[in-house]
Design a binder for these strands. Structure first.
Length: 256
DNA sequence: ATGGTGGCCCGGCCA
């Protein structure tokens, strides 16, 4: 089972690239973020013609998450399943051929002294509760998406440039650590301990070509899934060429 | 590097 996560930064703007990428890579399950459209505008028929069932949780011009699957798509759950529902469309869950998958778009945080950063931390606490409510550590679960957190210093191009910024702060990294403590593993980092592996590069300043990136898009998996993962990769090619997203897809191939 | 870009949609906000 080939599982991917990709923040497409507007599915309307990115649909040609997304279609070409699906035809090229043929993932079985895709966790998508930042579709930036309503459910009505979501191109479910286009994906159906390509062999994918889909589920979308959108709100309009911002946020929006989706799951595509050509291995079945059942038990779709939009938003958090416990506690207060989030006011923004940032999380959707479904079951695909025996694996529960979650597509998450964690709030950016904007700045450490911004209210949005507190929202980010609360959101991550809610995510931990959501995960505990839908699965057990011994089950088959993948929680993938744009976490807007670089798990460790190795996941950023320059720690000095990011001092005092979101994405690297102790409080948000602790929230990620709580997910690890529960039983979710960062399989790509386990398989690739080397530095310089990023999934996002700012559009500005030629960041991609200068290697100024961060690894903030993650596929976290329970041990059943992590142990069965044959390979993982980040598809940097998807960040090149005409009208790319500022994020590259992250992939994991799970033996079934 | 804190915008020189690129989304939203047409003046800024957001990432």
């Amino acid at each position: 089972m080939l599982i991917a996560t990709w923040n497409v930064n507007s599915l309307k703007a990115r649909l040609p690239r997304v279609q070409a990428w699906l035809e090229d890579v043929h993932p079985d399950v895709v966790l998508m973020q930042e579709t930036k459209m309503t459910d009505k505008a979501f191109p479910a028929l286009t994906f159906k013609e390509m062999g994918y069932e889909s589920a979308h949780f959108g709100q309009g011009q911002w946020n929006g998450v989706a799951i595509l699957s050509r291995l079945g798509l059942d038990n779709v759950r939009a938003n958090f399943v416990v506690g207060e529902p989030d006011g923004e469309a940032r999380i959707i869950t479904a079951d695909c051929s025996g694996v529960t998958v979650v597509s998450v778009y964690v709030p950016n945080g904007r700045a450490l002294d911004h209210e949005h950063y507190q929202y980010k931390l609360r959101w991550l606490d809610q995510l931990a509760k959501h995960v505990a409510a839908i699965a057990t550590p011994s089950g088959n679960l993948v929680v993938g998406g744009d976490y807007n957190i670089a798990p460790a210093d190795i996941d950023v191009w320059d720690t000095k440039a990011l001092e005092g910024s979101t994405h690297v702060s102790a409080a948000e990294r602790e929230r990620l650590e709580a997910l690890h403590d529960w039983g979710l593993r960062d399989v790509l980092r386990e398989q690739h301990p080397e530095p310089g592996i990023y999934s996002w590069w700012d559009y500005r300043n030629g960041s991609f070509h200068r290697g100024w990136g961060m690894r903030i898009d993650l596929l976290l998996a329970t041990s059943n899934i992590a142990d069965a993962t044959m390979w993982t990769a980040i598809d940097r090619n998807a960040r090149k060429g005409e009208q790319p997203s500022d994020h590259a897809p992250v992939l994991m191939e799970v033996s079934t």
